Simulated scan of single mutants.
Amino acid sequence: MTAPATIDSHNLSARLGSAKPPRVLDVRTPGEFETAHIAGAYNVPLDLLREHRDEIIKHLDEDVVLVCRSGQRAAQADETLRNAGLANVHVLDGGITAWEANGFMVSRGAQRWDLERQVRLVAGSIVLSSVLASIAVPKLKWVAAAIGGGLTFASLTNTCAMGMALSKLPYNRGASCDAQSVVSALIGANCPAGRAN
C-alpha cells in the first residue's frame, strides 16, 4: 500500500470555506460520528464503503477528504477508493483528533467512547481476567496470549477484527447508516439536507 495523500486541518478548513469545497467522508461508525464530526461531513462507515464501493464512487466526482479518529481507517478507505480508480482522495492528517486539537469546531451529539478506546478496554479486560484466572486454571494464560497475538497481527496488517466486531454492537450503530441512505445523501449534496449537520 502506498502512503495516502494527506491534508492537514488548516488546509481542509480553508478548502471547506472555498467556492468548491471537497466532500468530507467520515468512515467511523455511526455512533462515533454522532459523538463528534466535521459539519457537512457524510458518514460512510469503512465496512459500508468497502462493501458498496462501486455504487458510492459513482457520486464522488469532486475532491474527497476521508476522516476517521486518527487516520488509520481513513487510510484503509483511501486504498479502497484508489483501487477503484478514484484519484482525487486525501486523508485528514491526524483525523478528527487533530482537527479538534487544532481548535476547529465539530458538531456534537450523544457522547460515546470511540472504537479504539473500546478495543483497548475489551482487550485489556480479557487479558487481565485470563491472567488472574490462570492462577486457578493455568491453561487460561493462552487466552491472554491469543489476544496479544491478535493485537500484534492487527498492528502489522493495519486491521482490527475486534474493532470490526465491536462496530456491529448496538452501542456503535447510532443512526441508521446503509448504502441507500449514503447514496441518497451524496446525490442530494447540493441540497441543505444532503449533508450531515
Rank of each mutant, 00 (worst) to 15 (best):
V119L: 01
D114F: 02
F104L: 12
A87Y: 05
V127N: 11
M164N: 11
V89T: 08
A87M: 09
K168L: 08
C191L: 13
I96A: 07
V137E: 14
W113P: 00
C191F: 12
G103E: 01
G148Y: 13
C177T: 04
R173E: 06
S184L: 06
Y171Q: 04
Q111K: 13
E116S: 11
Q111N: 09
W142G: 14
A185Q: 11
G149I: 06
S176N: 06
L132P: 14
G94T: 06
A136Y: 15
G150A: 04
K141V: 12
Q180I: 09
M162W: 00
K139G: 13
V143P: 13
Q118Y: 08
G163K: 12
L128A: 14
N190M: 06
G95F: 01
N190T: 11
A123W: 02
S184C: 08
L92C: 01
V183T: 09
V91C: 05
V137W: 15
V89R: 03
S176R: 08
I147L: 10
F104P: 09
A193N: 08
Y171R: 06
V119D: 02
A144T: 11
K139Q: 02
C191Y: 14
M164L: 14
Q180M: 09
R108W: 09
M105V: 10
A154H: 10
W142M: 15
D178C: 04
W113Q: 07
M162H: 03
W99M: 09
K139F: 03
P192F: 01
S184V: 03
C160G: 10
L166Y: 05
S167L: 01
L169N: 08
A193Q: 12
N158W: 05
G188N: 10
G124N: 12
V143I: 14
A123Q: 03
T152S: 10
G148S: 13
D93E: 12
G109R: 11
